[in-house]
Design a protein around this nucleic acid. Structure first.
Length: 585
RNA sequence: GCGAGUGUAGCACAAUGGAUAGUGUAGUGGCCUCCGAAGCCAUUGAUCCGGGUUCGACUCCCGGCACUCGCACCA
């Protein structure tokens, strides 16, 4: 039996053909189907009002006419009603709810249903992108967490995703760093915590260069040697980068991040010369104050605010690399779309980059991919200012995740004292790190967000722990019944949903498709979070009202369907967000 | 100065131009002989101000006010 994954798409199509049959002029009617307030039904079509206005017809009779021309299948699956000024409400019948849940029963089924959205498209997602030789701190959290969630969402909805970690592994800081590395390296500290040692060395080099111009000169000389390909300096540089990447990967492992490629700035060193020579030759760039820059006369601000593509000393900067990177992603990956998951404070840079790339590509006679700055707000402390330690230092990501796991451990130990310690540790890591990820994802990415340990790990409200707890309770039902979750034999004999709790959960489950679509179209994971939270809420109400164990056979079977699918959707959803899930907690 | 963003209940957040603006916390009152009470149920409380567009505006446009951020060789 064919049953649409996204029922909204199906209703949209049905309404369009009904409009044609009812004599509505083509192109004047957009169905506008969306999920609705459950009080009114499951889906509603709002498009009649606008179309009636344009046609100069009263809306309600038009809505009635459309309803009368709906295909038989729609009327069989939905209770259809015209309401208010001219809304068409669709309420899924219990038989449709059960049928949908019987068709979409595994993660593979869901993925197959969702994958039509971006099939055949290649998307490059540029996220995390820390600087080598420095520890990742709280400022790196959101890019990593949001970027990973978006990459997973796109992949699940059918895209071929290239995850690219565009690390800062080249630049002027290496002069001072290498200078200090040669003179002040503490081998013991390096073995203990290499990145901390690199950070210390950089500070030593920086301070020495500030205090003594001769040192500054020496550091510059080290940089020139590195850039000229001096083998010794290159070896130091490589060592620093390797060690840095290993340290980053330990963080990424905890956050469920795995990059497809790590093409840092240095990768583009030999691809920069054509960028500025072409920009100059095409007349896209001009010379200003000794630098090569791009102005955009059509833009209110960038007509005077330059985009510097080559510094007055002849060196490249990040604008140059970013342009070279766009070209590489098109030519090498055939990217149709490139996402930059970067702090919103860099908005100007990306706006200028995209304008410049458009002009450059046009001159090259090449289509520019869709370039999107997926921006996000700042992580604030409880004082409303950017999150720092009490002494004003940035908070290290590793320490932050450790603290999250520690706090979760205290909680797990309190709630489940009889679990063995190693299991409590394992649970705490999942709950703690997941809480940090979820707190970040559950809020609209564009706004700043307030970092609060208490709200994050306190298990009330829209938190990771609440969702994980719902999972644990479902698992427990199956465990107590000696059943595998989703076992078809346990579900056989299920009849249509009856109680308010059953119906509410089933109605929420069929809207997973919509949550995925909304979330991936807008590149906003919080829509998925909100959906999962509401689903878990509906489930908790149902769980409280309707018992599975001990129910008569048909009721037990249909309730097991709800348990299994809620578990499936919650787990699939949480995995898409980058979280790990657990059996009990 | 120019530009961008934000302004929703005591606090923290939602609302893809749609119906009576949702939720969590905090407050109050219930529910464990009942699959995990890290839970459930009930209840109080808000769109910065002023215009406009629209059948319909938290949402779009214009003008204020407040806060945040960005603005020449760091990324």
């Amino acid at each position: 039996m064919h049953l649409a994954f996204d029922l909204i798409v199906e209703l949209d199509r049905a309404l369009l053909s009904a409009a044609a049959a009812a004599g509505v002029e083509a192109g004047t009617f957009q169905p506008g189907v969306r999920t609705s307030d459950p009080r009114h039904g499951d889906f509603q079509a709002n498009g009649v009002l606008g179309a009636a206005k344009r046609a100069g017809r009263p809306p309600r009779p038009l809505a009635e006419a459309l309803v009368a021309h709906l295909p038989e299948s729609v009327r069989r699956d939905f209770d259809v009603a015209v309401a208010g000024p001219g809304f068409i409400n669709f309420t899924a019948r219990p038989s449709l709810l059960l049928a949908w849940l019987q068709v979409y029963r595994t993660e593979g089924d869901l993925a197959a249903g969702a994958s039509a959205a971006h099939a055949g498209e290649t998307w490059v997602v540029d996220y995390s992108s820390p600087n080598a030789a420095k520890q990742m701190h709280v400022g790196h959290l959101r890019s990593a967490v949001i970027g990973e969630a978006i990459a997973r969402l796109l992949a699940f909805t059918g895209a071929h995703v290239v995850r690219d970690n565009h690390i800062g592994d080249w630049g002027t800081q290496y002069g001072k760093l290498i200078w200090a590395y040669r003179r002040h390296l503490d081998a013991e500290a390096l073995a203990r915590d290499p990145i901390e040692e690199f950070e210390r060395l950089y500070k030593v080099g920086n301070a020495a260069a500030e205090a003594d111009p001769a040192v500054l000169e020496e550091a510059r000389a080290e940089l020139v040697k590195l850039q000229a390909g001096d083998p010794d300096n290159l070896a130091v540089w490589r060592h620093i980068n390797e060690v840095s990447l290993e340290a980053f990967q330990r963080i990424y492992d905890r956050l469920g991040i795995k990059f497809d490629v790590t093409l840092g700035e240095s990768f583009y060193n030999d691809k920069l010369e054509p960028v500025y020579s072409e920009l100059a030759r095409f007349g896209v760039s001009t010379e200003s104050q000794g630098a090569q820059v791009v102005f955009h006369p059509e833009h209110p601000r960038f007509k005077t605010q330059p985009f510097i593509v080559r510094k007055s000393d002849g060196a490249a900067n990040y604008a140059t690399t970013d342009l070279a990177t766009v070209l590489y992603r098109v030519e090498h990956f055939h990217a149709r779309c490139v996402l930059y998951v970067v702090d919103k404070r860099q908005g100007d840079h990306f706006e200028q980059l995209f304008l410049t790339a458009a002009k450059w590509f046009e001159k090259r006679g090449q289509a520019v991919p869709r370039l999107v700055h997926v921006d996000f707000g700042t992580v604030l402390g409880e004082d409303g200012k950017p999150l720092k330690t009490r002494t004003g230092d940035s908070i290290k990501l590793r320490g932050l995740l450790d603290e999250a796991a520690e706090r979760a451990f205290a909680l797990v130990s309190q709630k489940s004292p009889d679990f063995p310690e190693d299991e409590r540790r394992r649970i705490a890591e999942i709950v703690g790190v997941g809480s940090v990820q979820y707190a970040d994802l559950s809020q609209h990415r564009s706004s700043d967000y307030l970092f609060s340990w208490d709200k994050m790990i306190s298990l009330d409200g829209n938190t990771a722990a609440y969702l994980l707890y719902a999972l644990a309770r479902i698992r427990s039902i199956f465990r107590r019944q000696g059943l595998e979750c989703g076992d078809p034999s346990a579900e056989s004999g299920a009849d249509a949903f009856q109680t308010p709790g059953e119906v509410a959960v089933a109605r929420k489950l069929i809207k997973f498709a919509d949550a995925l679509r909304l979330s991936s179209e807008t590149l906003c994971p919080h829509f998925l979070c909100l959906y999962l939270y509401e689903l878990a809420g509906e489930f908790s109400t149902f769980y409280n009202a309707d018992k599975v164990i001990g129910a008569e056979p048909a009721a037990r079977a249909r309730r097991l369907v709800l348990c299994a699918r809620t578990l499936l959707v919650l787990e699939t959803g949480l995995h898409l967000l980058g979280l790990r899930t657990l059996e009990r907690m």
